[in-house]
Every structure is written in C-alpha cells, then in structure tokens.
C-alpha cells in the first residue's frame, strides 16, 4: 500500500473560541491523500474548503484532530517550523497568482530557494530550468505586469516546484483565467502528476474537478463524497 502523504483525522476548526461569535467551520474531517494522486477538493464558497486548505498548507492549526504531513504531526510544530514545512514540503499556487510585483519572473521563481538558503548560481540554474519547463523561458526577465494571467500562473507553478515539495497545493488555480488558458494550466498539472507529483486542487467548479482522478466533495464543513483513492480500497 502506498504511504499517505496527507493524513487528516477528525479535523475540527473553530474560530473565536470562548467568545460570543464562536463558530465551528470544520466538523470532523477524515482524509488521506496518497503519493502521486491528483485530488480535487470541491465545494461551494462557505463550504469550508479554504479553511481546510489553510490547515493542509500549514498556514493554520486545527482546533481538534490530527494532521500528519509526510509523517510529521504539523500541530506540534512551532511557527518557524511551519514556515520550514511550507518552504520545503508544500508548493502553493493561488487563484490570483500572488507573484511579487516589480520583481522579474526569474526572481519570483527563485524566492522559495532564497528562504531555503540555496546559493545564487544553483537558484538561477534551477529557476531557469523550471521556467523553461512551463514554457516561460523567454520571459524570465519580465516582471508580472508584463505577463498575461495564464503566463503568470505558469510562473507561479514553476515557483511552486522549486524546492521539490511533497505536494502542490493549488487554490482555485484557474479561477482568474479564461476557459482556454484554464485547460492549458490544467494540462501542466496533469503532466506534473504523470511524472509522479502529488497535487491537491481546491475548486468550486465541477468541470475542473472532473479533470482530476479523485474528487472529494465538501459541504458545510463535512466531506460528503469521495470518489476514493485506489489505496483506500484494500
């Protein structure tokens, strides 16, 4: 059986604990994601998918339950250790690209390596390679204002790969793109997945979700459907 990269067990998230407006968003999520899967987490806005993503992405701690990433219990980690995890194990791709303005595409892609302490020439080498891989090699020196949406997302994808993360965590990656560009980006994800990359894609679009081999549906803070992974069926 393949090992789970992400193990979520009984995850509950409550905001404003002990206050008048105390609100429980996630009501006990159980989810295992295995190496090499391309998983879509589908839900409408308000379903709790963003909250779940923040926990998976080590941006936030759960209130109850356990979360293991690559065998490490994320809840026991300090803020600095969580930063390390985000830097080395998770590759983020955001809906609105979140590239740093007035910095070249190359510098943007290099950024996670900067925080990982990688020396300059190795950074440039790897970043250039990844940019070429996503078809942005010729625009390495462009800053984001000179790139189209699709181009920006491709740069963002290159950036997410730069420290060889265990998972790519993509939050509505096609949300700001037109249909054609969306499918181009999806194709990149599928290629990466074919090469063995584990990808978790958060989306509200059923259409996008249908492109992924596994679909987990979340509604009102609970998983209501899971097309299942091959590994769960033992």
């Amino acid at each position: 059986m393949r090992k789970p990269i992400i193990e979520l067990h009984g995850i509950v998230k409550t905001y404003n604990i002990g206050m008048e407006n105390e609100l429980e968003i996630l009501h006990g999520i159980d989810l295992n994601i295995y190496e090499g899967e391309l998983v879509a987490i589908v839900g409408e806005s308000g379903s709790g998918k963003s909250t779940l993503m923040n926990i998976i992405g080590a941006l936030d701690h759960q209130t109850k339950g356990t979360y293991h990433l690559d065998g490490v219990d994320v809840n026991t980690l300090s803020k600095d250790e969580m930063s390390e995890i985000r830097n080395k194990k998770i590759g983020f791709v955001f809906q609105n690209f979140n590239l740093i303005p007035r910095m070249s595409a190359l510098s943007n892609v290099e950024l996670p390596m900067l925080y990982a302490g990688v020396p300059k020439n190795r950074r440039t080498e790897k970043a250039t390679k990844l940019l070429e891989m996503v078809g942005m090699g010729k625009r390495a020196d462009h800053d984001p204002s000179r790139l189209s949406g699709g181009q920006k997302q491709r740069v963002a994808i290159a950036r997410s790969l730069v420290n060889d993360p265990s998972i790519i965590l993509a939050d509505e990656p096609t949300g700001a793109l037109d249909k054609e560009t969306s499918y181009q980006v999806l194709d990149i994800f599928k290629e990466l997945n074919k090469e063995g990359k584990t990808i978790v894609l958060i989306t509200h679009s059923q259409e996008i979700a249908m492109e992924c081999q596994r679909r987990v549906t979340i509604l009102d803070g609970r998983i209501i459907n899971d097309t299942g992974s091959e590994s769960d069926a033992v």
Binding site: G57, L59, K79, D80, S83, E84, R86, N87, K88, F92, N98, L99, I100, P101, L111, P112, Y115, A116, R159, N163
Partner: peptide
C-alpha cells in the same frame, strides 16, 4: 499581501 506571499512561501517572522 506581498508579506503574506513571502510567509506562505516559507519566510520566517524573523526573516
């Protein structure tokens, strides 16, 4: 926002 991005990419508070 930029600070948020950097933190998401792994920048520590100290950095």
């Amino acid at each position: 926002r930029e600070i948020g991005i950097r933190m998401a990419l792994g920048a520590k508070n100290r950095e």
